[in-house]
Computed example of a mutant assay.
Amino acid sequence: MSPEDAVHALYRRIDEGDLAGFGELFGEDAVYHRPGSEPLNGRGAIERFYREARTIRSGTHTLERVLLSDGAVAVDGSFDGVLTDGRTQSHRFAEIFEFGPDGLISRRDSFLFVVNF
């Protein structure tokens, strides 16, 4: 799977609630940097965050741009969904993905443009 295909698969699997398939896109030692929290180190920590700590119940990511550079992928887009407390949430985001030699995501950096998250 190409890096661009992997990124599209990542958002599709998140939106579909396919957390097992989502986790398979990350290398064992992947690092996920999220605003306002410590980095999530390792595939297991990333999967646990999505299963246990994520404050979003459901939603849809819409990618507006996908940019490739030296094997890395940058995206920007929007998200519309429902939080675990029932409130609706809409925000813009940008992310940068790096890939390991195995073709799996080795690093994900998220930048969220959120009001009242």
Results as ranks from 00 to 15, higher is better:
M1Y: 06
M1A: 11
S2E: 03
S2L: 09
P3W: 00
E4S: 09
E4D: 13
E4P: 03
D5Q: 05
A6C: 15
A6G: 12
A6S: 15
V7H: 05
H8I: 13
H8S: 13
A9T: 14
A9G: 09
L10C: 09
R12N: 14
R12T: 15
R12D: 15
D15N: 08
D15A: 00
D15G: 05
D15C: 05
E16L: 01
D18Y: 07
L19A: 05
A20Y: 14
A20P: 09
A20R: 13
A20T: 15
A20D: 15
G23F: 14
E24S: 06
F26T: 00
F26W: 01
F26V: 00
G27L: 02
G27D: 09
G27N: 00
E28H: 03
D29I: 07
Y32R: 04
Y32H: 08
Y32W: 04
H33T: 08
R34K: 04
R34S: 08
R34D: 04
P35Y: 10
G36I: 08
E38A: 04
E38F: 12
E38I: 13
P39D: 00
P39G: 06
L40N: 10
N41V: 11
G44W: 12
A45N: 09
I46V: 05
I46H: 03
I46Y: 05
I46M: 01
E47R: 12
R48V: 02
Y50P: 07
R51H: 15
R51T: 15
E52S: 04
E52F: 02
A53S: 14
R54S: 11
R54G: 09
T55H: 03
I56D: 11
I56Q: 07
R57N: 10
R57Q: 11
S58I: 08
S58T: 10
G59P: 14
G59K: 03
H61N: 09
T62F: 07
T62N: 08
L63A: 06
E64R: 02
L67K: 10
L67H: 13
L67R: 12
L67P: 15
S69W: 01
D70Y: 08
D70S: 12
V73M: 00
V73C: 07
V73I: 02
V73P: 07
A74S: 02
V75P: 04
S78F: 09
S78Q: 09
S78H: 11
D80L: 07
G81E: 00
G81M: 05
V82Q: 08
L83T: 04
L83Q: 00
L83D: 06
L83I: 06
D85Y: 09
G86C: 04
G86L: 06
G86S: 05
G86P: 01
R87Y: 14
Q89A: 05
Q89N: 07
S90I: 11
S90G: 15
H91M: 11
F93R: 05
A94D: 05
E95R: 13
E95Y: 10
E95A: 12
I96Q: 06
I96S: 08
F97K: 02
E98T: 13
F99R: 04
F99A: 06
F99Q: 02
P101I: 11
G103S: 00
I105S: 12
I105T: 13
R107T: 12
R107V: 13
R108Y: 13
R108Q: 15
R108K: 15
D109G: 12
D109H: 11
S110F: 01
L112V: 12
L112H: 07
F113P: 00
V114W: 00
N116C: 15
F117N: 14
F117Y: 15
